[in-house]
Simulated scan of single mutants.
Amino acid sequence: MKKFPRVVWDPSRLLANAAFLDRLCHQQKNSVGWIPVTKVTCADPDIVGTLIRQGYDSFADSRIENLRRIKQMSSSCQTTLLRLPGLHEVAEVVRYADISLVSEQDTIAALQREAQRDNRRHKIILMIELGDLREGVCTQHALEMGRFILEQDHIEWLGIGTNLTCYGGVIPTADIMLELTGLKARIETELGHALTIVSGGNSSLLPLLLEQRLPPGINQLRLGEALFFGRETAYGRHIAGMHEDIFRLEAEVIEVKEKPSVPKGTLGKNAFGETPVFRDRGIHTRAIIALGEQDVPVADLSPFDPNISILGGSSDHLILDVTGCDIKVGDVLSFRLNYRALLYAMTSGYVGKHKLTEEEIGSCVS
Protein backbone atom coordinates (compact mmCIF):
# COMPACT_ATOMS: atom_id res chain seq x y z
CA MET A 1 0.00 0.00 0.00
CA LYS A 2 1.27 3.47 -0.89
CA LYS A 3 1.97 5.83 1.99
CA PHE A 4 1.39 9.58 1.67
CA PRO A 5 2.94 12.03 2.03
CA ARG A 6 6.09 10.54 0.61
CA VAL A 7 9.41 11.52 -0.92
CA VAL A 8 9.91 9.88 -4.28
CA TRP A 9 13.40 9.67 -5.77
CA ASP A 10 15.00 8.54 -9.00
CA PRO A 11 18.09 6.30 -8.60
CA SER A 12 19.13 6.74 -12.25
CA ARG A 13 19.39 10.51 -11.82
CA LEU A 14 21.24 10.11 -8.53
CA LEU A 15 23.86 7.89 -10.17
CA ALA A 16 24.11 10.26 -13.13
CA ASN A 17 24.92 13.13 -10.74
CA ALA A 18 27.52 10.99 -8.92
CA ALA A 19 29.15 10.08 -12.25
CA PHE A 20 29.20 13.77 -13.22
CA LEU A 21 31.10 14.62 -10.02
CA ASP A 22 33.52 11.75 -10.68
CA ARG A 23 34.30 13.15 -14.13
CA LEU A 24 34.60 16.70 -12.84
CA CYS A 25 37.14 15.66 -10.20
CA HIS A 26 39.10 13.52 -12.67
CA GLN A 27 39.32 16.44 -15.09
CA GLN A 28 41.24 18.55 -12.60
CA LYS A 29 44.95 19.07 -13.19
CA ASN A 30 45.67 17.64 -9.76
CA SER A 31 44.24 14.60 -8.00
CA VAL A 32 40.96 15.48 -6.25
CA GLY A 33 38.55 13.06 -4.60
CA TRP A 34 35.07 13.62 -3.20
CA ILE A 35 32.96 12.00 -0.48
CA PRO A 36 29.16 11.72 -0.70
CA VAL A 37 27.58 13.57 2.23
CA THR A 38 24.42 11.72 3.18
CA LYS A 39 23.01 13.92 5.93
CA VAL A 40 20.19 15.51 3.89
CA THR A 41 18.83 12.01 3.27
CA CYS A 42 19.50 10.78 6.85
CA ALA A 43 21.68 8.08 5.24
CA ASP A 44 18.56 6.46 3.82
CA PRO A 45 19.44 2.76 3.30
CA ASP A 46 18.05 2.65 -0.24
CA ILE A 47 20.00 5.75 -1.27
CA VAL A 48 23.25 4.68 0.39
CA GLY A 49 22.78 1.14 -0.90
CA THR A 50 22.36 2.43 -4.45
CA LEU A 51 25.69 4.25 -4.17
CA ILE A 52 27.44 1.29 -2.55
CA ARG A 53 26.33 -1.03 -5.33
CA GLN A 54 27.76 1.45 -7.81
CA GLY A 55 31.15 1.18 -6.10
CA TYR A 56 31.17 4.13 -3.69
CA ASP A 57 32.74 3.06 -0.42
CA SER A 58 33.29 6.28 1.53
CA PHE A 59 30.54 8.40 3.10
CA ALA A 60 30.31 11.41 5.38
CA ASP A 61 27.50 12.49 7.68
CA SER A 62 26.98 14.83 10.61
CA ARG A 63 25.09 12.33 12.79
CA ILE A 64 26.69 9.29 14.35
CA GLU A 65 23.34 7.47 14.12
CA ASN A 66 23.56 7.73 10.33
CA LEU A 67 27.15 6.47 10.27
CA ARG A 68 26.10 3.51 12.41
CA ARG A 69 23.42 2.73 9.82
CA ILE A 70 25.99 2.85 7.02
CA LYS A 71 28.37 0.56 8.91
CA GLN A 72 25.56 -1.89 9.51
CA MET A 73 24.93 -1.92 5.77
CA SER A 74 28.59 -2.38 4.85
CA SER A 75 31.32 -2.63 7.47
CA SER A 76 33.96 -2.04 4.79
CA CYS A 77 32.69 1.47 3.99
CA GLN A 78 34.87 4.29 5.31
CA THR A 79 32.82 6.73 7.38
CA THR A 80 33.58 10.34 8.29
CA LEU A 81 31.79 12.24 11.05
CA LEU A 82 31.34 15.84 9.87
CA ARG A 83 30.03 17.44 13.06
CA LEU A 84 32.61 17.83 15.80
CA PRO A 85 32.18 14.90 18.23
CA GLY A 86 30.48 15.55 21.53
CA LEU A 87 32.25 14.22 24.60
CA HIS A 88 29.16 12.14 25.46
CA GLU A 89 29.41 10.16 22.21
CA VAL A 90 33.13 9.40 21.83
CA ALA A 91 32.59 5.67 22.33
CA GLU A 92 30.19 5.56 19.39
CA VAL A 93 32.42 7.88 17.35
CA VAL A 94 35.41 5.57 17.72
CA ARG A 95 33.22 2.58 16.94
CA TYR A 96 31.28 3.88 13.91
CA ALA A 97 33.34 6.74 12.47
CA ASP A 98 36.63 5.83 10.87
CA ILE A 99 37.48 9.54 10.66
CA SER A 100 36.21 12.49 12.63
CA LEU A 101 36.66 16.24 12.19
CA VAL A 102 38.05 17.86 15.34
CA SER A 103 39.03 21.25 16.71
CA GLU A 104 39.29 20.85 20.52
CA GLN A 105 42.07 19.34 22.64
CA ASP A 106 39.55 17.96 25.15
CA THR A 107 37.77 16.10 22.36
CA ILE A 108 41.01 14.71 20.94
CA ALA A 109 42.07 13.57 24.41
CA ALA A 110 38.70 11.83 24.92
CA LEU A 111 38.99 10.12 21.53
CA GLN A 112 42.52 9.03 22.47
CA ARG A 113 41.32 7.45 25.73
CA GLU A 114 38.43 5.67 24.03
CA ALA A 115 40.58 4.43 21.15
CA GLN A 116 43.17 3.17 23.65
CA ARG A 117 40.43 1.41 25.64
CA ASP A 118 39.14 -0.15 22.41
CA ASN A 119 42.67 -1.03 21.25
CA ARG A 120 42.38 0.79 17.92
CA ARG A 121 43.62 3.95 16.24
CA HIS A 122 41.15 6.68 15.45
CA LYS A 123 41.75 8.93 12.45
CA ILE A 124 41.15 12.67 12.57
CA ILE A 125 41.15 15.74 10.34
CA LEU A 126 41.96 18.98 12.15
CA MET A 127 39.52 21.71 11.12
CA ILE A 128 40.92 25.17 10.44
CA GLU A 129 39.02 28.46 10.83
CA LEU A 130 39.40 30.46 7.61
CA GLY A 131 36.77 33.14 7.98
CA ASP A 132 33.30 31.56 8.06
CA LEU A 133 33.30 31.46 11.88
CA ARG A 134 31.86 28.03 12.36
CA GLU A 135 34.15 25.20 13.56
CA GLY A 136 37.93 25.23 13.37
CA VAL A 137 41.22 26.16 15.02
CA CYS A 138 42.55 29.60 14.17
CA THR A 139 45.63 29.32 11.97
CA GLN A 140 47.97 30.82 14.58
CA HIS A 141 47.12 27.95 16.94
CA ALA A 142 47.29 25.11 14.41
CA LEU A 143 50.92 24.15 15.11
CA GLU A 144 50.35 24.08 18.85
CA MET A 145 47.32 21.84 18.31
CA GLY A 146 49.35 19.69 15.95
CA ARG A 147 52.01 19.08 18.59
CA PHE A 148 49.30 17.98 21.00
CA ILE A 149 47.83 15.60 18.41
CA LEU A 150 51.19 14.00 17.74
CA GLU A 151 51.53 13.17 21.43
CA GLN A 152 48.46 10.87 21.21
CA ASP A 153 49.54 7.35 20.31
CA HIS A 154 46.04 6.10 19.41
CA ILE A 155 45.18 9.06 17.17
CA GLU A 156 46.17 9.07 13.50
CA TRP A 157 46.35 12.59 12.12
CA LEU A 158 45.34 12.37 8.46
CA GLY A 159 45.10 16.00 7.49
CA ILE A 160 43.49 19.40 7.79
CA GLY A 161 40.23 20.79 6.48
CA THR A 162 37.95 23.78 6.50
CA ASN A 163 34.29 24.63 6.08
CA LEU A 164 33.01 27.75 4.38
CA THR A 165 29.64 29.20 3.35
CA CYS A 166 27.41 27.09 5.65
CA TYR A 167 27.30 29.62 8.49
CA GLY A 168 28.94 32.90 7.54
CA GLY A 169 28.28 32.66 3.81
CA VAL A 170 31.98 33.15 3.01
CA ILE A 171 32.70 32.23 -0.61
CA PRO A 172 35.65 29.86 -1.07
CA THR A 173 38.30 31.51 -3.21
CA ALA A 174 41.59 30.29 -4.60
CA ASP A 175 43.39 32.55 -2.12
CA ILE A 176 41.60 30.98 0.86
CA MET A 177 42.40 27.51 -0.43
CA LEU A 178 46.05 28.54 -0.85
CA GLU A 179 46.03 29.58 2.81
CA LEU A 180 44.97 26.04 3.69
CA THR A 181 47.62 24.37 1.53
CA GLY A 182 50.21 26.80 2.88
CA LEU A 183 49.34 25.73 6.41
CA LYS A 184 49.78 22.10 5.39
CA ALA A 185 53.29 22.92 4.17
CA ARG A 186 54.13 24.66 7.46
CA ILE A 187 52.88 21.72 9.50
CA GLU A 188 54.91 19.25 7.48
CA THR A 189 58.04 21.42 7.66
CA GLU A 190 57.88 22.46 11.31
CA LEU A 191 56.34 19.34 12.84
CA GLY A 192 57.77 16.77 10.46
CA HIS A 193 54.39 15.10 10.01
CA ALA A 194 53.08 14.28 6.53
CA LEU A 195 49.41 15.09 5.95
CA THR A 196 47.64 13.01 3.31
CA ILE A 197 44.32 14.89 3.25
CA VAL A 198 43.54 18.56 2.66
CA SER A 199 39.75 18.72 2.77
CA GLY A 200 38.78 21.97 1.09
CA GLY A 201 35.09 22.02 1.85
CA ASN A 202 31.64 21.45 0.48
CA SER A 203 29.51 22.11 -2.60
CA SER A 204 30.41 25.81 -2.51
CA LEU A 205 33.80 24.78 -3.97
CA LEU A 206 32.22 23.61 -7.23
CA PRO A 207 32.75 26.95 -9.05
CA LEU A 208 36.51 26.59 -8.54
CA LEU A 209 36.40 23.08 -9.96
CA LEU A 210 34.22 24.04 -12.90
CA GLU A 211 36.63 26.87 -13.75
CA GLN A 212 39.73 24.68 -13.18
CA ARG A 213 40.93 27.14 -10.49
CA LEU A 214 41.16 24.83 -7.47
CA PRO A 215 44.74 25.18 -6.19
CA PRO A 216 47.00 22.11 -6.18
CA GLY A 217 47.05 20.32 -2.85
CA ILE A 218 43.31 20.45 -2.15
CA ASN A 219 42.59 16.76 -2.60
CA GLN A 220 39.21 16.14 -0.91
CA LEU A 221 35.72 17.62 -1.22
CA ARG A 222 32.65 16.80 0.88
CA LEU A 223 29.62 17.00 -1.43
CA GLY A 224 25.97 16.65 -0.56
CA GLU A 225 23.92 19.42 -2.15
CA ALA A 226 25.76 19.11 -5.46
CA LEU A 227 25.13 15.37 -5.49
CA PHE A 228 21.44 15.50 -4.59
CA PHE A 229 20.40 18.82 -6.17
CA GLY A 230 22.89 19.42 -9.00
CA ARG A 231 23.72 22.80 -7.54
CA GLU A 232 26.75 24.63 -6.22
CA THR A 233 26.14 26.46 -2.96
CA ALA A 234 28.42 29.48 -3.29
CA TYR A 235 25.95 31.27 -5.56
CA GLY A 236 23.11 28.74 -5.62
CA ARG A 237 23.40 28.07 -9.35
CA HIS A 238 22.39 24.91 -11.16
CA ILE A 239 25.32 23.00 -12.64
CA ALA A 240 24.75 22.34 -16.32
CA GLY A 241 24.64 18.62 -16.99
CA MET A 242 23.40 17.67 -13.52
CA HIS A 243 19.90 16.76 -12.38
CA GLU A 244 18.01 19.12 -10.06
CA ASP A 245 14.97 16.85 -9.81
CA ILE A 246 16.09 13.61 -8.19
CA PHE A 247 13.47 14.12 -5.47
CA ARG A 248 9.83 15.17 -5.34
CA LEU A 249 7.27 15.21 -2.55
CA GLU A 250 3.85 13.65 -3.14
CA ALA A 251 0.79 14.28 -0.97
CA GLU A 252 -2.88 13.34 -1.14
CA VAL A 253 -5.81 15.73 -1.56
CA ILE A 254 -8.28 15.33 1.32
CA GLU A 255 -10.70 18.20 0.58
CA VAL A 256 -11.72 20.29 -2.44
CA LYS A 257 -14.28 23.08 -1.96
CA GLU A 258 -15.16 26.58 -3.10
CA LYS A 259 -14.59 28.97 -0.23
CA PRO A 260 -13.88 32.65 0.39
CA SER A 261 -10.24 33.68 0.39
CA VAL A 262 -10.43 35.77 3.58
CA PRO A 263 -11.44 34.31 6.98
CA LYS A 264 -14.63 35.57 8.59
CA GLY A 265 -14.61 37.00 12.08
CA THR A 266 -12.11 38.65 14.39
CA LEU A 267 -8.60 37.50 13.53
CA GLY A 268 -6.00 36.53 16.13
CA LYS A 269 -2.88 34.46 15.93
CA ASN A 270 -2.61 31.15 14.10
CA ALA A 271 -1.36 27.80 15.42
CA PHE A 272 2.24 29.05 15.39
CA GLY A 273 1.61 32.34 17.16
CA GLU A 274 1.77 34.33 13.92
CA THR A 275 -0.69 36.92 12.67
CA PRO A 276 -1.59 35.83 9.13
CA VAL A 277 -2.29 38.26 6.29
CA PHE A 278 -4.76 37.33 3.52
CA ARG A 279 -5.24 38.63 0.00
CA ASP A 280 -8.85 38.83 -1.15
CA ARG A 281 -9.13 36.54 -4.16
CA GLY A 282 -12.89 36.26 -3.93
CA ILE A 283 -14.63 32.89 -3.96
CA HIS A 284 -12.22 30.31 -5.35
CA THR A 285 -11.48 26.59 -5.32
CA ARG A 286 -9.33 25.50 -2.43
CA ALA A 287 -7.78 22.10 -1.86
CA ILE A 288 -6.35 20.71 1.35
CA ILE A 289 -3.63 18.11 1.22
CA ALA A 290 -2.50 15.87 4.08
CA LEU A 291 0.82 17.57 4.71
CA GLY A 292 1.91 20.25 7.15
CA GLU A 293 4.67 22.01 9.03
CA GLN A 294 5.25 18.91 11.14
CA ASP A 295 6.42 17.21 7.95
CA VAL A 296 8.19 19.99 6.02
CA PRO A 297 8.51 23.79 6.07
CA VAL A 298 5.71 24.44 3.60
CA ALA A 299 7.22 27.73 2.42
CA ASP A 300 10.06 25.69 0.92
CA LEU A 301 7.77 23.73 -1.39
CA SER A 302 6.68 24.61 -4.91
CA PRO A 303 3.97 22.76 -6.87
CA PHE A 304 4.95 21.09 -10.12
CA ASP A 305 1.67 22.29 -11.60
CA PRO A 306 2.14 26.02 -12.34
CA ASN A 307 -1.62 26.58 -12.01
CA ILE A 308 -1.54 25.63 -8.32
CA SER A 309 -0.42 28.07 -5.65
CA ILE A 310 0.23 27.53 -1.95
CA LEU A 311 -1.90 29.72 0.31
CA GLY A 312 -0.55 28.54 3.65
CA GLY A 313 -0.72 25.73 6.11
CA SER A 314 -0.87 24.48 9.66
CA SER A 315 0.77 21.59 11.47
CA ASP A 316 -1.04 18.94 9.44
CA HIS A 317 -2.74 20.71 6.50
CA LEU A 318 -1.51 22.53 3.41
CA ILE A 319 -4.02 24.88 1.76
CA LEU A 320 -3.82 25.36 -2.01
CA ASP A 321 -5.54 27.57 -4.56
CA VAL A 322 -6.54 25.12 -7.32
CA THR A 323 -8.99 27.35 -9.17
CA GLY A 324 -9.36 26.18 -12.76
CA CYS A 325 -7.66 22.84 -12.06
CA ASP A 326 -9.35 19.47 -12.40
CA ILE A 327 -8.55 18.18 -8.91
CA LYS A 328 -10.62 15.89 -6.71
CA VAL A 329 -10.33 14.18 -3.35
CA GLY A 330 -7.85 11.31 -3.52
CA ASP A 331 -5.65 12.90 -6.17
CA VAL A 332 -1.91 12.95 -5.46
CA LEU A 333 -0.09 16.24 -6.08
CA SER A 334 3.66 16.66 -6.54
CA PHE A 335 5.97 19.35 -5.16
CA ARG A 336 9.57 20.36 -5.65
CA LEU A 337 11.70 20.46 -2.51
CA ASN A 338 14.68 22.64 -1.71
CA TYR A 339 17.51 21.41 0.52
CA ARG A 340 15.81 22.32 3.79
CA ALA A 341 12.49 20.79 2.77
CA LEU A 342 14.18 17.53 1.79
CA LEU A 343 16.10 17.46 5.08
CA TYR A 344 12.88 17.84 7.08
CA ALA A 345 10.97 15.33 4.96
CA MET A 346 13.68 12.67 5.17
CA THR A 347 13.94 13.20 8.93
CA SER A 348 10.19 12.91 9.51
CA GLY A 349 8.83 9.51 10.41
CA TYR A 350 5.46 10.61 9.03
CA VAL A 351 6.79 10.99 5.47
CA GLY A 352 7.29 7.83 3.42
CA LYS A 353 10.31 7.30 1.18
CA HIS A 354 9.97 5.61 -2.19
CA LYS A 355 12.67 4.62 -4.68
CA LEU A 356 11.33 4.62 -8.23
CA THR A 357 11.50 1.28 -10.00
CA GLU A 358 12.81 0.96 -13.56
CA GLU A 359 9.22 0.55 -14.74
CA GLU A 360 8.14 3.72 -12.92
CA ILE A 361 11.13 5.64 -14.28
CA GLY A 362 10.26 4.53 -17.79
CA SER A 363 6.68 5.73 -17.41
CA CYS A 364 7.69 9.16 -16.08
CA VAL A 365 7.56 12.12 -18.40
CA SER A 366 10.62 14.32 -17.95
Rank of each mutant, 00 (worst) to 15 (best):
L164Y: 00
M177W: 07
I254T: 10
I155A: 07
R281N: 10
V262G: 00
L205M: 13
T173I: 13
L158K: 06
K259M: 10
L191V: 03
L210N: 08
A271E: 12
G192F: 04
G192E: 01
T165V: 04
C166H: 07
E232T: 08
E211H: 05
E252I: 06
F278L: 03
I197H: 03
A234D: 00
N202K: 04
P263W: 07
V198T: 13
R213K: 11
H243S: 11
K264M: 12
Q212W: 04
R186F: 02
E211N: 15
P263E: 13
R231E: 04
P172K: 03
G265L: 05
A251Q: 07
T165I: 01
I246D: 11
M177E: 10
E151I: 03
F148D: 11
R222S: 10
L208V: 11
K259E: 13
I187D: 00
A251I: 15
E211K: 10
L223R: 15
D280V: 05
E190Q: 09
E211D: 12
A251M: 14
D175N: 07
F229A: 14
L208S: 03
A194D: 09
S204V: 02
A174I: 09
I283A: 09
G236H: 05
G241S: 02
Y167W: 08
N219H: 03
P172W: 03
G146T: 00
T173Y: 06
R281F: 01
I155E: 12
E225A: 05
N270K: 06
K259W: 07
R248S: 12
I171F: 06
K264Q: 15
R186V: 01
T189N: 01
H154T: 12
L158H: 09
G241D: 08
N163C: 02
G159K: 12
F148L: 03
F228R: 12
T196F: 03
A226V: 07
P172Q: 06
I246K: 04
I160L: 05
M242G: 11
A174L: 08
G201A: 04
A226E: 00
L210Q: 10
L208C: 08
E156M: 02
F148C: 08
G273S: 09
P172G: 05
F247D: 08
A226M: 04
R222L: 06
E188A: 05
T275V: 13
K184S: 01
I218G: 03
K259Q: 14
P263I: 14
L223T: 13
P207I: 14
L208F: 08
H238W: 15
R213I: 12
E151P: 02
G161Q: 14
E179A: 08
L158F: 08
T266G: 07
A251C: 14
G268I: 12
H193R: 07
L208A: 06
L205E: 02
G169M: 02
T266H: 01
G230L: 10
P216Y: 02
